[in-house]
Every structure is written in C-alpha cells, then in structure tokens.
C-alpha cells in the first residue's frame, strides 16, 4: 500500500466549492432582501385617476383581447364588470391571468406583472362597477380561532381542497389547487369572488371573522408539520396504501428472499 501526497497547491481543494457556495448564498440573500423591499413599496393610491388610467392602459394592452376593450367580455372570456379589485388581485396576483393557453382551467404560475401594475389593473376594474374589494390585512394574516376555522373548512372547503388543504381532482381535468403555499389575502379573495369553478362564499355565508378563522387554520397547517409523521403530500389513504403496497411489501419480499436463499 503506497500513499501519494494529494496536496499539490497552497489551497485546500474544497476552498473553491466553499467560495462558490458563499457567493450563491450572498447573491440569493441580497436578492430576497431587495425583492421583499420592492413588494413592500408597491402601495399605490387605488382611488387616484392616474392609477385608474395606468390600469386602463395595461388592461387594453394585456387583457382586452379576450375580455373586450370595455371589459364587457366575449365568447371566450367573462365580463369583468363588477368582479371587483379582489378578483383582479387574485387572478393576476397568482399568475392565473393572463392565461397562457386554453385548458380545463387556468393554472397558477409566476405572476406576469409587478405588484404595482396589479394594483393599477385592480383599480381600473374596480372603477367599472362596485365589487368585492381587496381585504384588509387584519382579516388575512391569521390571529383568529384555528379550531373554529378548521370546522368551517371541513364543512365548506375540505371536500374539494382536501382536509389538509392539499388540493384534489375535480371532473374533466379540473382540480381544486393546493392551499399549502397560498397567501392569506389570496385565500380570502378566492372565497369572496369564486374564481373559475370555485363557488362564491360571500360575507353572509361565511362572515369575515369566520374567513379569518379559516385562514388561521390554513396558516396553522402550513406552519406546523403533521404530528403523525411523514404525511405523503397529505393525499390520504390512496397514496398511503400505494406507498405501503410498493415499499412495505417490497421490503418484506426482499427479506423473505434473503432468508430463504442459500448462503454464498
């Protein structure tokens, strides 16, 4: 056994990777800090005529092809008169609009506009006719009764969105999306406006305080891991059964083969 000396230069061979990692962390961290800043700054005056005019320009350039120049709708897209600022903030803020392609439903994707542009679009659509407004942060940042919210969620939402908010399939390619990373504001707006095939839950069906409770419950599930161990994406008994069939039985078969095989 001979051992050659590995070190050839002054530096340790892992220094390069260490520096690379450090650089990536610094860049990413700086980006996250700056973009958080940008989001915080995007507060525009929704009532000023200037904002509405800017929103109208954006609308005519990006939305009017389907929704019509006056937002009156067309054969392929609904009218946006009276859908309110909440609807725009939800649809554009989650990237669902503008829609990339026709399909069973508009999927969530990275937002195509800045927060400022979304606010301008919302101000324009809200100026057409009264509709649901963007909810106040006091209703969307939790702080309610998570247990009551869980009961309301099980009665009103869990049949489509799954009791853990993991989402689920509907008919003909449609699906209820996962709520595991959805913001409180977007959850509230979806309940008020009923986007796509989701029914509307207005403030008389589920009061604003109850909506806050539901958001509190969802935030609780987002922030706390499952006490029962690995949740397998919360897909329920089908995923768990498949897992145990494939891996549990697989391990048992492998051990059986090992026990009965003749030793080498």
């Amino acid at each position: 056994m001979t051992r050659t000396k590995r070190r050839t230069g002054r530096r340790h061979p892992f220094v390069f990777f260490g520096l690379l990692l450090l650089g990536l962390i610094l860049t990413g961290g700086a980006y996250a800090a700056v973009s958080d800043d940008a989001r915080a700054r995007a507060s525009v005056d929704a009532n000023s005529q200037h904002t509405i005019d800017e929103g109208k320009k954006l609308f005519q350039a990006n939305c009017a092809t389907c929704h019509g120049l006056q937002a009156q709708g067309s054969g392929t897209a609904p009218s946006l008169i009276g859908v309110g600022a909440a609807s725009v903030d939800f649809q554009v803020g989650t990237g669902r609009m503008p829609m990339a392609a026709n399909g069973p439903q508009a999927p969530e994707k990275p937002p195509q506009f800045t927060d400022e542009q979304i606010a301008e679009l919302a101000a324009y659509v809200a100026s057409l006719a009264p509709g649901p407004v963007i909810p106040d942060a006091s209703l969307t940042s939790g702080g309610g009764d998570a247990a009551k919210g869980a009961e309301l969620f099980r009665i009103n939402c869990a049949m489509c969105h799954n009791v853990a908010g993991a989402g689920g399939a509907l008919t003909e390619g449609k699906y209820a999306p996962s709520l595991e990373s959805t913001s409180g504001t977007h959850i509230y707006e979806a309940m008020v406006t009923g986007p796509q095939n989701m029914p509307v839950f207005n403030d008389l069906t589920i009061s604003p305080e109850s909506k806050r409770d539901i958001i509190t419950y969802l935030k609780y599930t987002q922030e706390n891991s499952s006490p029962g161990g690995y949740a397998l994406a919360s897909l329920g008994p089908v995923a768990e059964g498949l897992f145990i069939w494939i891996f549990g039985l697989g391990v048992i078969i492998a051990v059986t083969v090992w026990i009965t095989a003749k030793s080498n």
């Binding site: 009961e151 309301l152 009665i155 009103n156 029914p199 509307v200 207005n202 069906t205």
Partner: peptide, 21 residues
Amino acid sequence: TLDPSGAPIKAADVTLGSAVH
C-alpha cells in the same frame, strides 16, 4: 340554516355562483 351555526339564510344573501351547506 347554515351549517354549523344554524343561522337562517335570506334569499337575497345568496350570491350568484354560491354553494351553501
């Protein structure tokens, strides 16, 4: 009435597109 609170429902309060349990 609403599940679970038991509050009665006015017809005018049911928005188009609603589903109420």
